[in-house]
Structure formats: structure tokens, C-alpha cells
Simulated scan of single mutants.
Amino acid sequence: MTAAFPFTLSDMPVPMVFATHRIIRDCNAEFARLFGYDRADLINGSLARLYPAIADFVRTGEMWRHNLPGGAVYYDERVMADAGGTRFWCRVHGRTRDPVDPFAWALYCFEPISRPVSRKTLSLTGRQRQILTLVAQGKTSAVIAEETGLSRRTVEAHRLRLTRAVGVENSAQLIAWFLSE
């Protein structure tokens, strides 16, 4: 005998969204509130409207397409944008039920991070912010290369440019700068 799950998406106290092929099919009030929309305005709309730029949406999609298949759980940290255009850092956890197409049926949980989006952070490219968040998660260049579909050498070049861009000397200082921003 199977017991019915006693909760629905709307009962969840954290921002959650159910999406098919990156189209919002359902979300809870916490998710809508996080982004400053009415829930009804988000349903059947693309997740793309929640990103600062379409390039961020595409880049994140490619990374998740590579890392989410097979029922895997994956997460990242990224800058998102609310209805008024205000940008904020967010940790996103996702899981798919489709072993082949990770976007066919996916559930995402969004957690705002109390890390300010500074001018310096915004001056970085979307790719640099992506690499920076993966470095801050303690991932090696090889792992980052695998997750992003870039070569290890390209990742190392991004890391070097990041240290120069923010005025630090090594990865440890880069992570400390990022976490204190």
C-alpha cells in the first residue's frame, strides 16, 4: 500500500517550480514572491524571463543539460533578476525524472543567497560569474571543464583572468573575495 504524499507544491515553504522544457508549469507563492510576480503571470511562461540576460539562460541550460540527466540532482549558484530588474544571487537545486531529457520534467528549488550583487561582480561576464561560482564550490578546473563543456585549459584561462579582474593573486583569495562581496 502506498501512502499519498501529504503535501503539494503550493504547501512548500521554499520557492519551488515545476517546469517542462524550461517552461514554468507550476510554482508556489514563495517562488512568485521571490521574483516579484503574481503566480498566474509565471505559469506557462519561460524561465528565461528570470535571468538578467538570455545568454545567462542559455549558458545555464547547457550546463544543466550536461549534469542533470539520469535522475541526477544538481545545483549551482547564479545571478537572477526579479520583475523590477533587481539582480540577486540564488542557489538553485534541480532534479529531473526523465533519464534522457533532463528538461522534460524537472523540479527546481530556489534559495536566495545573502550575497550582494556588487558592481565588480556585474562587471564580470556571465561566463566568468559561472566559473567563479563553480570555483567557490571548491571544484577543480577539470570538474568545471566537465560541467561546463569547456576545455580544462579554457577554464584555467578564465580563472587566471578572474584573479586579475578582481585584483587577487590566487584561487584561495578569489574565493575569499567572492564570498565577502
Rank of each mutant, 00 (worst) to 15 (best):
T121Y: 10
L174G: 01
S141T: 08
T163E: 11
R39D: 05
W105S: 13
R127M: 14
D41K: 10
R115Y: 01
A55K: 10
R87E: 12
P15Y: 03
L9K: 05
T163H: 06
A104E: 11
F18W: 14
N170K: 04
A106W: 01
N67D: 03
Y37R: 11
G85C: 07
R91C: 08
D56N: 12
A19P: 09
T96G: 07
E30M: 11
L162Q: 06
V92C: 12
T8D: 11
S118M: 07
I23Y: 12
L134R: 02
Y51H: 15
T86M: 02
G45H: 13
A48E: 14
A29E: 15
L42F: 07
A136W: 04
N67L: 00
P69W: 05
G70Q: 01
A106G: 06
R97T: 14
F7H: 14
V166D: 04
A172P: 02
T148P: 00
A142E: 14
I113A: 05
F5M: 11
M80P: 00
M12T: 04
A40E: 13
S123Y: 02
E30C: 11
T8S: 15
T133Y: 03
T20C: 15
R39H: 10
R25P: 07
C27T: 06
L34Y: 00
Q173Y: 01
E169S: 03
N44L: 10
V117N: 02
E156S: 06
R153N: 06
N44A: 03
L107T: 05
A172S: 14
A29W: 06
G71K: 09
